[in-house]
Each structure stands twice: as C-alpha cells, then as structure tokens.
Design a protein around this nucleic acid. Structure first.
Lengths: 339, 339
DNA sequence: ATCCGATTCGAAAACGTTTTCGTGTTGAAA
DNA sequence: TTTCAACACGAAAACGTTTTCGAATCGGAT
C-alpha cells in the first residue's frame, strides 16, 4: 500500500524546495526546463495528484454543490439529481446529496452542517414540514453568509434567491382545459393539502379552468389528501360518485391509485373515466393503461438549477445582484388513460 | 452579509491567542473558567462554527463517503442511496453521489478525481461497460492507496474488498421453482446479455431450477436482451410462442413490457400467462395487474454497505484485514401477475 | 527571601497547497 | 574588474484548525 505522495515528499526526494516542485508541475517559466522535466517525470512516476482538501482550503472553494431534497425515492427528484449531476460534472463540480425526509429539523441540520466551508452552494426543494412551518431562517442565514442558494419546484416567496419552477397553476389549468375541450362535465380533482405549495397551485389552476369555462366548482369533486392519510379509502369514496367522468390528479401516485380503484369499482379507464396525472414518471409510462400526464422535466429543471448556481458561483463577486426565476415548460403527454 | 468568523478573528477581538480560543471552545481545563466563558459567549454571539475543510485537512478525514452508481433514475439505485444516506447521516457522514452513466470512463474519472483526499471511502456498483471490459485498475489503485471500497449488487470477484450482494442465482432459482411448483411447464426467461453480472447469475439460477426438476432447458424460451436493443420487438417475438405459460423477467422493465405485449397479443395475465419480475420497485407495485416480484431490498443493501464502510473507516487502522461479503435476503412478493 | 508546584496562556508546528517576494548565481556589457 | 539584468530557485505567508510544549505568573511553603 503506497500512500498518496505530496509536494513535500517530492521536494525532499529531488532535493529541491516545495515551491520549485509546485511551480514545475504548473509549468512555470520561472523554473528551468531541466528541473521542470525532472520534477514532472518524478511526479508522474509516483502518480502525484494535488490534494483537493488543501486546495479547497487555500482557494476557499470546494467545487462541490449540495442538493437537498425531501425524498430520493421520488422519481421526479431522482431525475432532478440526474440533471444537476450532469451539469455539475461538466463544470468540474461534485454533488453532495442530502435528504430532508420531509423534516424541517433534518433540513436545518444539513444546511448548518454544510454551510461551514464544506460546499460552495445549495440547490434545494423545501420539505413539507418547512412549508408548513413557514420557517426559513436557516436559508436566510446561509444566504446572508454569502453562499448562493437555488430553489426548485417547492419554493417560497419569502426567500429571495434564484429559483427554477414550473408554472404549476398554468399546467393544471391546461390539463383541466383539455378535459373541458373534450366535453367532460364532471371533472374531479385529487390534490394534496394546501400547504404543499405545488398542490395549492395546481388546485388553483384547476379551479381557474373551470371558472373560465363557466363550470361549477363542486367541492364534492375535490379531494385534498393529507400526507399521513391512507388515501385509498378517500379516493374510493370520491369515486363512489358515479357522475364523475374525468379525474385530474396532482401526482402519479394519486393517478394510478385512482385508476386501480376505478377498476375495482367496475369503471373502465378511459372508457368510463378519463384520468390525467402530474409528473411524467415511471408509473405513468408503464402502468396499463399508461397514463396521460403533465410532464415536468426533472432533468431539465435540475440542469437549469445547477447552471444558475454555478454561474453565480463563478460570477465576478457580487456583480449581478439580480435574482432570477426560471420557468420550465410543461407539456401534456397523451397516453391511454384519456380518450 | 456577514462572512464566517474564524478563530483568528475571535482571538484578535478578545486580545488572546488563537490557541486560547480553540481550547476555550473545546472546554479545555487548561484555560481559566473566566476566559472560557468569555470566549464561548463571544463565539456564540458571532455564530462561530469551525471550518470543515480546515478540519479535514488537519485530521485527514473528510467525513464524506462517495457512492458511484450507474444510473440514478433506476428506482433500485435510488433506494440504495436512501439507505446509504441514512446510515451515513446517523454516523455523521455526508454522501457524495456520482453517476457513471454505465460508462467506464466516467467511473474512472470520478474515482480518480475523488481519491485525492476529497472523501474517505467509496461505495459502488459497477457500470455495464466496466463489467464488459473487465478493467478494474482504477479500483485496485484506490484500494492500494489505503482507501476502503465497498461494492454492492454489481460486483466482481477480481477485486478483493467488502461486498454487499443478493444471491441472484438463488433468488432466480426460487422464482423459477415457484413456477414449477405451481405446475407451469413452459417457463420463459427474459434476461440481459451475460456480461451484466446479475443477469448472468439470474440466468444460471433459472437454468439450475429447470434442470433440478428434470425440465428441458429450451433455448427458444430464453431471451437475452442487449443494452441498446429495442427490446419490445424481441419480446413480442418470444411471446409469439403460444406454448409459454410463465415468464420470469430479470427486471421490472422487462416484466411490465412483457405483460403489455402479452395483452396486445390477446393473452391475459395471469390467466393465460403468469409473470414474475425482479426488483421490487414502483412499476411492479403500481402497474395493473401488479407484478409478482423478487424483492431486492435496496434500502437495506445501501444501509449495510454504508455500515461496512464506516466500520472500516473507524477501525483501529488496518486492524481487521478480513474482507466480508454480506448477502441480503430476497423474498418473493406475490401479487396479481401470477396465479 | 527562596523555591516549587499549580495555573494559565502563547508560540509554533502540522495538514498540503499556491504565490509573492527576495536572493544568489551567472553571463555579458561597460 | 565592476555592474546589472536575466535566470533559477527558496523562504515564508496564507488558508483555519488542533495540539504539544514551553514559559510566565502567582501563591504558598520553607
């Protein structure tokens, strides 16, 4: 086992100074051709690689960014990481992944733990608990220390920073409008409780579309699911309403579960009921019938977020103070669950 | 914006030495009660947190581990990360995620880039290309430098290190045996090409089960899918054989696709054909019919891998040279795709 | 007054870099 | 021979810690 070789060791071995070794390896003209060659050959032989930690300490840059997400088992978040990772890698950055598990405390601990020089910046999506508590002091603190933060998907207006979002309201509006255009009359909504920002926005879009077409907004057709809830029963209850001819669900899970329960209740999808989901993930693609869905391009979102963060990191120091909010386009992917 | 405060600044401000500040904060008895209080109060006021990079340099420990996986959009790998992250966090470690994208080069680059002090150890699953090339020099090199590596799932015998695997062969054997026990005669296999280690092992288990029950191994019932292939047609071709009454697929995707194609060909699952998949992921759970599958507990695998790595990191220096291979149990989860 | 032990603190090294600045040597020009 | 630039290299600081060791001060005991 040969330990990593350092500048000091090379210097000692070749009987020159550390500075000479360093300069030689960076091909400084200050050093004679002879010495440079000698040092470089020796370094190559011993497979010298500069110690990243030492460099980080010196440069005050770690070339590492951290992404904090509520859950990784969510396909959407996995795609976001993928996008972040690729853009980061292209720019010579590494990606530290932290999971908040939808917990406020874990989010805070993670941020505080890493804000001490370990990383250069954050990309994050708020945990449900944080959204519920509306306590963002940990984020403000980090930003005040001069560390850039980019929020995506689950964001808040209370923090000023770069953001990457989709227009949840518009996307929901379009999905609902799609139903309306096809002549559906009783369009149900399966959403989350309102403190989840995206759930709220999607609900708003749904309502706006209905109102826009002078359709009645029927509270009985709107189901808002609590996080801890066993939602199968709630959905079954909703679907016992035989008038419903279309369902807009704010995520994949709700959509596929609705289809499953509809089947159990003897209703065929899409013949008796049409279903549109949200988030174009694995489930929508591979369930049968495959599910028409609002596609939310996670890879693109992550890539954009990483790009914004890195640009800010490499900007000439506080030059552009302007924060931007990028909107990623969504698209309705039509599949078998609608007719 | 207030920048991070350092020991030096505190020392200057309070007109004591850096050492005194450091010791005070660590509550050393060497320092008088008075001074300690004063320093601690000041540090708290200015929200002092030691710089992690400086600590890493000093301690030669980063408290960061890296997990290299081929793909993150794979639900299984996402669950593994989840397991790794949680165990790591419990032990005060952070997790750096690297994606090889199934590419040998990216795997090598990632490892070389991080083996220079950035992290304390690796957890990894081989990329397909690496398995194909059988070139593991980058891994040996890292291990030779004294950096521990734990491999999981896609491992190789050519590297000596800790490993976490499932008994792929046994799991496939059991799945196939399950079919045999139920009286199925024409059991098809949808596998990957042999250089993917798990594909090969699962194929072996399938064959072993058949032979064990004196059933003929019919090459026409075995489909080995190339990575780049458009496999839908191949599966359709396989299923045109009307004798087939059961299918064992080595992953979720093959299983769900087989079901879809069977449906198109007018065959009902499970009435006409039973299907067992591999990897208990989202697809198996939420497709209809839901898919009977060999459950491979990714969270447990990741957790175990992280535990093994951390134990080795914190062992009293080269004490236990013994490498271990842990086998995570699999389990057949029966759902609607089998009768 | 002297000595000794305890108490309290600071200087400095160490981790591995990069970079600035200074210094010594060489050669050629005066 | 002197002078000066060019050349080649080294010392040291800096990044932010921790820790070892030495030193100063003080009180009490002799």
């Amino acid at each position: 086992m040969k330990r990593k070789v350092t500048l000091k060791q090379i210097a000692k071995e070749l009987d020159v100074s550390i500075s000479t070794v360093s300069k030689s390896l960076r091909n400084s003209l200050e050093i004679s051709e002879d010495t440079r060659q000698k040092v470089q050959a020796f370094a190559k032989l011993y497979n010298y690689k500069p110690n990243n930690i030492a460099l980080s300490l010196k440069n005050k840059k770690t070339k590492t960014i951290c992404i904090i997400i509520p859950e990784i088992i969510h396909h959407f978040f996995a795609t976001v990481i993928s996008g972040v990772e690729h853009v980061a890698n292209e720019n010579g950055y590494n990606v530290l992944v932290c999971l908040s598990d939808e917990s406020f405390d874990k989010e805070v601990i993670n941020m505080e733990m890493l804000a001490n020089g370990s990383i250069d910046g954050f990309i994050m999506s708020l945990s449900k608990e944080t959204q519920l508590k509306k306590d963002f002091h940990h984020i403000t603190e980090v930003i005040n220390q001069g560390m850039p933060v980019v929020m995506f998907d689950r964001v808040t207006n209370e923090i000023l920073c770069d953001k990457v979002i989709i227009d949840d309201s518009l996307a929901a509006f379009n999905a609902t409008q799609h139903f309306i255009d096809k002549g559906f009359k009783k369009i149900a909504l399966i959403s989350t409780v309102d403190y989840v920002s995206v759930g709220k926005l999607r609900t708003e879009g749904y309502i706006k579309a209905l109102k826009n077409s002078d359709l009645k907004v029927d509270e009985n057709l709107i189901l808002k699911i609590e996080d801890t809830e066993n939602f199968e029963d709630s959905i079954a209850n909703l679907l016992s309403n035989n008038e419903i001819d279309a369902i807009f669900a704010v995520n994949e899970l709700f959509a596929v579960t609705a289809i499953k329960i509809a089947n159990k209740l003897g209703k065929k999808v899409p013949d008796d009921i049409s279903v549109i989901g949200f988030t174009d993930g694995i489930i929508s693609k591979y369930s049968s019938p495959s599910i028409t869905t609002v596609s939310q391009n996670g890879v693109k979102m992550g890539g954009k977020a990483a790009k914004m963060l890195i640009e800010r990191l490499e900007a000439d120091e506080e030059e552009e103070e302007q924060y931007r909010t990028e909107v990623i386009e969504t698209e309705l992917v039509e599949r078998e669950s609608t007719r």
